[in-house]
């Protein structure tokens, strides 16, 4: 092997491993933030309704804090190499999506769309060859929210909040109908989607318990 070729190859290999280290640093940073968000959001299960909005504000400020990470990544990742490195931060990003979508639901009762979440996390259109939010990662985050909401439906009732499960049921029903129309080829995503049925059943059973005992009234929603 020519010495020049060898040097060139070694430079390329070294650049890559250095790059990997720098991305890993950002991902560690990202992980710290997502861990904090998850820990805070975990408290929704035993926080009374009147203090929940303060809790959500805390999380919102961490979400904003994630923007420095996405910016950091956009500065490190070389042009065109988004797909090369994305697996490194994919898990953290899915968790951030989860936090963002859950906070939005608890604040406004709405589903935060892909673009909205992407904006919240500070992603810019011009970075799309380096850092961006893929449909798959977004959907993973949304599914995690549903998993969490089925647990919330249960715990809300324990806290005496009998309307929450009914709202959740309505929200998840819509989401599920939406997902049903997707042509999911991706295996993990499909498997996770299939698991949503269990969450939905669980939520429906909570609504059943509440309505059977007339603890809250379930409005008959005309089917769409």
């Amino acid at each position: 092997m020519e010495a020049a070729d060898l040097d060139q190859i070694n430079t390329l290999l070294d650049t890559d491993s250095e790059l990997r280290e720098r991305i890993k640093d950002q991902v560690n940073e990202f992980d710290k933030k997502t861990r904090l968000m998850v820990a805070t959001l975990n408290k929704i299960h035993f926080t009374p309704p009147d203090t929940i909005s303060a809790l959500l504000d805390t999380v919102k400020s961490v979400i904003v804090g994630c923007q420095s990470v996405t910016k950091g990544l956009a500065e490190i990742v070389p042009p065109n190499q988004f797909w090369r490195w994305k697996d490194m931060w994919s898990n953290s990003l899915k968790t951030a999506v989860f936090a963002s979508v859950l906070v939005e639901y608890l604040s406004s009762g709405q589903l935060a769309g892909l673009q909205q979440v992407s904006d919240q996390l500070g992603m810019r259109e011009e970075w799309k060859d380096r850092v961006s939010l893929t449909v798959e990662d977004y959907l993973h985050g949304v599914i995690s929210v549903v998993n969490e909401l089925s647990r919330l439906a249960v715990n809300s009732v324990t806290l005496g909040n009998f309307d929450q499960p009914i709202k959740i049921s309505h929200f998840v029903k819509e989401l599920f109908a939406g997902f049903s129309m997707l042509n999911l080829k991706n295996d993990t995503l499909r498997r996770r989607f299939d698991s949503l049925k269990y969450d939905m059943k669980k939520i429906e059973e909570v609504v059943y318990d509440v309505s059977l005992r007339k603890l809250a009234t379930v409005p008959i929603v005309p089917s769409t």
Binding site: V157, T158, G160, V206, D209, V210, L215
Partner: peptide, 8 residues
């Protein structure tokens, strides 16, 4: 949860 539901 089951305790809460039944006693409510």
């Amino acid at each position: 949860y089951a305790i809460a539901v039944r006693s409510s």
